[in-house]
Computed example of a mutant assay.
Amino acid sequence: MKDYGYLSVFVERSQDLIVSLGEHILITLVAVFLGCLVSIPLGMYLTRTKVKWIHSTTFMITNVFQTIPSLALLAMLLPLLGVGMLPAIVALFLYSLLPILRNTYAGFKSINEGIIQSAIGMGYSPMQRLFQIEFPLAFPYIMSGIRLTTVYIINWATLATLIGAGGLGELIVSGLGVYDKPLILAAAVLSMALALIADFLLSLLEKSLIKKSHSEQQQII
């Protein structure tokens, strides 16, 4: 085993770190994107449906996924999906559902009914109300769920290496196997930095989109 320094490891193992970081980002992006693709429309639908059992069943199912330990869920998916990125992405996608769904639902439920009635009085169609009024007002809640989920997924993705999905967790596990402390620290630092950077970029996106839609909201309010 070659003994790297705590700083020189970033140079000596730069190629491995870059590849693993890229895999980690890919796994996270796909899982969060799929979570948004399912949870946001579903959360919007739940605020409109009058069928109570659909609401309770949906939240019960998504909550069940959250209660399953990460390693157990990965192990359950192995016989179905094998090893690699696919089972890791599916597992992380399932974990992403509840926080995004819950925040989307809360965001739409928080909208003042008077604003909706004002939009109706001004002749807004249901689709116009949804995308020009309701969605912008609920957006801060939705983004809060996405930001929280993204940070969690980045952390949980380190376990993906246990089923051959790669990512920064692969370097951490490899470092543990040979007690390579600089490599372990380098991979852990990159994982933490990735979470912080992702949260910062999403916060900038949130502020930018909120500012853009603010003038339209004021016309209705």
Rank of each mutant, 00 (worst) to 15 (best):
K2C: 03
D3N: 13
Y4L: 02
L7P: 10
V9E: 01
S14H: 09
Q15R: 13
L17T: 01
V19K: 10
E23N: 05
H24D: 06
L29H: 08
V38E: 04
S39W: 04
M44D: 09
L46V: 06
L46N: 11
T47D: 05
V51D: 14
S56C: 03
T58N: 04
V64A: 07
F65M: 07
F65P: 04
Q66L: 14
P69G: 04
L73V: 10
A75E: 04
L77D: 03
L81W: 10
G82Y: 02
V83M: 05
G84H: 12
A88F: 07
A91M: 11
I100E: 04
R102W: 10
A106G: 13
G107T: 11
K109L: 12
N112G: 11
E113A: 08
E113R: 11
I116C: 06
Q117D: 14
S118L: 03
I120F: 01
I120W: 01
G121M: 05
M122S: 12
M122P: 00
G123H: 03
Y124M: 09
P126S: 08
R129Y: 00
F131L: 09
P136H: 01
A138G: 07
F139A: 08
Y141P: 06
I142Y: 05
M143R: 10
R147L: 02
T150M: 13
Y152A: 14
I154R: 00
L159I: 14
A165N: 00
A165Y: 07
G166F: 06
G167E: 04
L168A: 11
E170Y: 12
E170P: 00
I172C: 08
L176S: 02
G177P: 04
Y179S: 09
K181A: 11
V189S: 05
L194V: 06
D199L: 06
L201R: 13
L204M: 14
L205F: 15
E206P: 09
L209T: 14
L209V: 15
S215A: 14
S215E: 13
E216S: 15
Q217P: 03
Q218R: 12
Q219D: 01
I221M: 11
